[in-house]
Amino acid sequence: MSGHIILDLGLISMLLVIAFAIIRMRSLFAVVMLQGVYSLVCAAWFVSLDAVDVAFTEAAVGAGVSTVLMLAAMLLADRQSDEVSLRRQIAPIIIVIASGLMLFYAIGDMPIYGDANSPANSHVGAGYLDKTAKDIHIPNVVTAVLASYRGFDTFGETVVIFAAGLGVLLLLGLNGNAGKWQACPNGVSIGLGQSPYAQLGEDQPKVSPKAEVATNLPKEKKTIAKKTSQSKGRPRKAVPKGDVS
C-alpha cells in the first residue's frame, strides 16, 4: 500500500512540475508538447487509481488527438506567446489561490478512496451492481450503465460530439476550403476573384482551378495561376518564395 502512495505522490509532483513549466514557457510548440506529457502522466495516474476507462480516454484524447489538433492550430497562429506584464498577472493569481484554498478546504468532506459507504457507491451505484448480473449478463458494469441503464444520456453525448464536429466543419470546411466559394446567381458566375479575400494578395491560400476559371480580370488571373502552380503537391510543404517565376 505504501508503494502505491509513493507512486501517486510521484505522479502528482510530476504534474505539478509540468504545470509550472507550461506557465513559464514562451514557446508555444513546447507548451503543446508539455500538455501532451501532462495528459500522459494523468493517464498513468488514472491507471494507478483503477480508472482504466478514463485512462484510455485521457491517453488517446488528451495526449494524442488534442495535441495534434493544438499543433495544427498553432501552425495557423504564432509560435511564440507574448510576455504578460506582472501587473496583469495579479488578478489571475489571486483567483487561482482562492479557488485552490477552497478546494483544500473541501477535501475534508470527500469520501475516502474506495469507500463502500460513499454516496456514489451506496444508492443507485449499489443497485446497478446488483442488477447488471441479473438483467444484462455482462461482467462490465460500466458498459451496462453507459449503454443500457443510462443509454439516453450516452445518446445525448453522442449527439454533442456530432454537433461539435458539425460546428468545426461549418466554420473550417472538411477540406480547408472555407472562403473558396463559387456561386452562380442569375447566370453570373462569381467566385474567389470577386470576393474580398482576393485583394489580400500574398496571403492568398491555395486556389482551386474552378475559381481560376471564374475570374475575368487578366491581372488577377496571372497571380492566381502562379499560386496554383506553387501549391501543387503537398499543401503543407511551403515552396520557397521566388522559386517559381
Binding site: 488527438v65 489538433l69 495544427a72 492550430a73 501552425l75 468545426v168 466554420l171 477540406n175 476550403n177 491560400p205
Partner: peptide, 9 residues
C-alpha cells in the same frame, strides 16, 4: 483533424 490540417499554412 482534416478540417484543421487542411488549412493553408
Amino acid at each position: 483533424f482534416y478540417a484543421f490540417g487542411s488549412r493553408p499554412v
